[in-house]
Amino acid sequence: MENFMNIYTVTVAVAIATVLIWTFKGLIYRKLYTRYSAWILNRLTVSLDTAYVSHKKRLFQIVEDYKNRQNGDLKILELGVGAAPNLKYVPDNSEITLLDPNPHFTKHAEENIVDARKRLKSVEWMQGVAEDIPSQSNTFDIVFCTLVLCSVVDVKKCLSEIHRVLKPGGMFVFVEHVAAEKNTWKRFVQTFMDPVHYVLYDKCSVIRDTETYIRASSLRDFQIENFHSTLYYWITPSIAGIATK
């Protein structure tokens, strides 16, 4: 009887907790989870940047070459800026807009933004999502993101918005971890880890076939490199590249 009462008490407690979490999930996400996400992803910023540094440098050299061909300074948009570790790669005298849905990243990005303002024309922070970019069409020379398309809600809508805000001839620059090939051991591990990543890292999916989405978009002239990063085993498959409008 005592065991039954213990089980009953635990069951009721779990049921009540579940109902409360479900009822107030919006408030919990806004007040607590967004703070946690900014904190944990900021903690990972250095290791993530280091894992992709060579590919970022190569891509931003292409951006620099594009600037020289344009014979003028660039207007740039970064999606999912996080703690803003990519600002150091941006060409001098650029005007850059930083877009992120999580307002709690601003304090983590502050130091990088202050440093960037010493050599860039302007640095503007905007809160928003990549599926609904709060900018006019044909605005930016460059749109770039790193490790962002893994966590957007609607990849197709995001890519459509990127195409919309790019100027004709403008470039989309990206570095992303992606799904491993199907029917491989790594893909099996990814499938197992995917729910964990979704919860711990703000909707991050490790089984998203991002390259297929990019190639199916309205962008063109794809230059995409497949490689393996130095991150955890289940998120090493990666792509880096550019596409143009």
Rank of each mutant, 00 (worst) to 15 (best):
1 M>S: 10
2 E>P: 01
6 N>H: 07
6 N>C: 08
10 V>W: 11
15 A>D: 02
16 I>D: 01
18 T>Y: 13
26 G>L: 05
30 R>E: 01
30 R>D: 01
37 S>R: 01
39 W>P: 00
41 L>P: 03
41 L>T: 08
46 V>W: 10
51 A>S: 14
56 K>E: 05
56 K>V: 02
61 Q>A: 13
64 E>F: 00
65 D>N: 15
65 D>G: 06
69 R>V: 06
70 Q>F: 08
75 K>S: 11
78 E>Y: 07
80 G>S: 07
80 G>V: 04
83 A>G: 09
90 V>Y: 05
91 P>I: 08
91 P>N: 12
92 D>Q: 13
95 E>Q: 13
99 L>Q: 07
104 H>P: 00
106 T>K: 15
107 K>L: 04
109 A>C: 08
110 E>T: 00
111 E>F: 11
111 E>V: 03
114 V>I: 14
120 L>V: 07
122 S>R: 14
122 S>F: 01
124 E>C: 12
129 V>H: 04
129 V>R: 12
129 V>F: 09
132 D>G: 12
132 D>L: 09
133 I>N: 06
133 I>E: 08
134 P>F: 13
136 Q>C: 11
137 S>I: 00
138 N>F: 05
145 C>Y: 01
157 K>R: 15
158 C>L: 04
159 L>Y: 08
160 S>N: 15
160 S>C: 10
161 E>A: 11
166 L>Y: 04
167 K>S: 01
168 P>I: 07
171 M>F: 09
174 F>K: 05
176 E>L: 04
178 V>W: 03
180 A>N: 05
181 E>Q: 13
183 N>A: 14
186 K>E: 10
186 K>N: 06
188 F>M: 14
188 F>E: 07
196 V>G: 04
202 D>M: 10
203 K>W: 14
207 I>N: 08
208 R>V: 01
208 R>C: 00
211 E>Y: 02
217 S>L: 06
218 S>T: 01
219 L>C: 05
220 R>E: 04
223 Q>L: 09
223 Q>H: 15
225 E>G: 09
230 T>Q: 12
233 Y>R: 12
239 I>P: 02
240 A>G: 05
243 A>C: 07
243 A>G: 06
244 T>Q: 08
